[in-house]
Design a protein around this nucleic acid. Sequence first.
DNA 1: AGGAGTTTGAGAACCGTTGTCAACTCGGTT
DNA 2: AACCGAGTTGACAACGGTTCTCAAACTCCT
Lengths: 145, 145
Amino acid sequence: MNDTTRSARTPAPPRMTRQRAAVADALGDTDEFRSAQQLHELLRSRGDAVGLATVYRTLQTLADGGDVDVLRSEDGESLYRRCARREHHHHLVCRACGRTVEIDGPTVEQWAASVGAAHGFADIEHTVELWGTCAACRAADERSS
Amino acid sequence: MNDTTRSARTPAPPRMTRQRAAVADALGDTDEFRSAQQLHELLRSRGDAVGLATVYRTLQTLADGGDVDVLRSEDGESLYRRCARREHHHHLVCRACGRTVEIDGPTVEQWAASVGAAHGFADIEHTVELWGTCAACRAADERSS
DNA sequence: AGGAGTTTGAGAACCGTTGTCAACTCGGTT
DNA sequence: AACCGAGTTGACAACGGTTCTCAAACTCCT
């Protein structure tokens, strides 16, 4: 059994491609949660276009690896962001521009676990997200009205 | 200007129909969060079918009026439930069967508001939901494995 | 019963997302 | 440097949940 013999259980080696780099790059550029379609459009306008399907695939891979955070906008769209810390945390997101602040829910984790256990539920997961309108968007909004 | 003259700003009077009653009824029967499609199927199997579009419309109306709670399942589907209390609260939901326990997030509201304000965000809303597997579903699961 | 205006429902349209599969690349080999 | 096998891409089809359309049916009031 030499190096090139890849036994069946070995996952599969990731490969670096222009497209993957481009997506990762676009995510690295911003602090804001972005949809797959926004990223796709951004890349296209930048000049190094990537197929929409590839954008979705790449984001999914990144998300699975914990390299990006995913959350659902209020109307169900998936939004992606490269967060500063990999540890579990929550977000305060501007619903207009996606600007995001990473926050801690000091007691949330513990509370969630104990409430779950108290009712006989297992494998507890929790969703805690804050939505608001950031100062900049508020200002922009008033200016245009 | 008599009674039958409905000035433009008056919303429009809701009207009781077999369909609306059926949907409300189906919701009243269960404690569990159900999708529009599940409710549609339930009604059909019960013998008093209601068009899918009508189920969606009715649920939306009920939700707008605060008569039912809506939340998004982990894979983005909208789920509806007639909760015992109309006041703001959170849920611990079984991801397998939809069984739900209404819970309070003692300090959550305040925490959300202050975190939002601290970062200059306005119109703060928060999503706090707990997902788990209830005891019954866990038992059922083990039995079949 | 009569009539104005609301509601319904079958099917089309929508929209974000995933699947398909032949062509193309990456990365290691010869 | 050319070669090759396996992973990757992308145009497009397909999917699944939800909303729209609009003619026919129904509510409610007189």
